[in-house]
Simulated scan of single mutants.
Amino acid sequence: MLKPRIQDDMKAAMKAGDKRRLGVIRLILAAIKQREVDERIELDDSQTLAVLDKMVKQRRDSVAQYEQAGREDLAEVERYEIEVCQQYLPEALDEQALADLVAQAIAATGAGSMKDMGKVMAELRPQVQGRADMGAVSAMVKQRLGS
Score class of each variant (00 low, 15 high):
residue 97 A to C: 01
residue 54 K to F: 13
residue 99 A to I: 03
residue 72 E to D: 10
residue 42 E to F: 07
residue 107 A to Y: 00
residue 100 D to G: 00
residue 99 A to K: 07
residue 55 M to T: 01
residue 137 V to M: 09
residue 103 A to D: 14
residue 25 I to Q: 09
residue 41 I to M: 06
residue 19 K to N: 13
residue 36 E to M: 01
residue 112 G to D: 10
residue 60 R to E: 14
residue 127 Q to L: 12
residue 2 L to W: 08
residue 121 M to G: 13
residue 115 K to V: 02
residue 10 M to D: 15
residue 126 P to H: 10
residue 72 E to V: 00
residue 44 D to Q: 03
residue 7 Q to P: 05
residue 62 S to Q: 13
residue 38 D to T: 02
residue 101 L to Y: 14
residue 135 G to E: 15
residue 2 L to K: 04
residue 134 M to A: 01
residue 18 D to N: 06
residue 10 M to G: 04
residue 80 Y to I: 00
residue 2 L to S: 02
residue 109 T to H: 01
residue 31 A to K: 06
residue 78 E to F: 02
residue 72 E to C: 00
residue 75 A to C: 04
residue 136 A to R: 08
residue 43 L to E: 09
residue 66 Y to T: 00
residue 39 E to N: 10
residue 41 I to A: 00
residue 118 G to E: 15
residue 73 D to C: 02
residue 143 Q to E: 14
residue 141 V to L: 06
residue 107 A to T: 00
residue 41 I to R: 06
residue 2 L to N: 04
residue 54 K to D: 15
residue 25 I to V: 09
residue 91 E to M: 00
residue 144 R to F: 15
residue 10 M to Y: 11
residue 106 I to Q: 07
residue 83 E to F: 06
residue 62 S to E: 14
residue 91 E to G: 00
residue 37 V to T: 10
residue 60 R to N: 11
residue 2 L to F: 09
residue 145 L to R: 09
residue 106 I to Y: 10
residue 137 V to P: 07
residue 106 I to R: 07
residue 32 I to C: 03
residue 59 R to C: 12
residue 68 Q to K: 15
residue 147 S to H: 11
residue 69 A to N: 13
residue 118 G to R: 13
residue 37 V to D: 14
residue 70 G to Q: 04
residue 30 A to V: 06
residue 119 K to R: 15
residue 127 Q to M: 07
residue 85 C to I: 06
residue 23 G to E: 14
residue 145 L to I: 06
residue 60 R to K: 13
residue 73 D to T: 00
residue 130 G to Q: 10
residue 105 A to M: 06
residue 128 V to T: 02
residue 91 E to I: 00
residue 61 D to K: 08
residue 30 A to G: 12
residue 8 D to S: 07
residue 125 R to D: 13
residue 81 E to M: 01
residue 43 L to G: 04
residue 124 L to R: 01
residue 114 M to Q: 09
residue 59 R to D: 14
residue 67 E to Y: 05
residue 40 R to F: 11
residue 103 A to I: 03
residue 27 L to T: 02
residue 146 G to S: 15
residue 62 S to N: 09
residue 31 A to N: 13
residue 37 V to L: 10
residue 57 K to R: 13
residue 9 D to A: 03
residue 71 R to S: 11
residue 22 L to W: 14
residue 130 G to T: 04
residue 62 S to I: 05
residue 131 R to S: 07
residue 89 L to K: 05
residue 143 Q to A: 10
residue 77 V to Y: 08
residue 104 Q to G: 03
residue 10 M to L: 15
residue 77 V to A: 08
residue 105 A to Y: 04
residue 7 Q to S: 07
residue 121 M to W: 07
residue 78 E to L: 01
residue 130 G to W: 15
residue 2 L to A: 07
residue 20 R to Q: 15
residue 32 I to L: 12
residue 49 L to F: 11
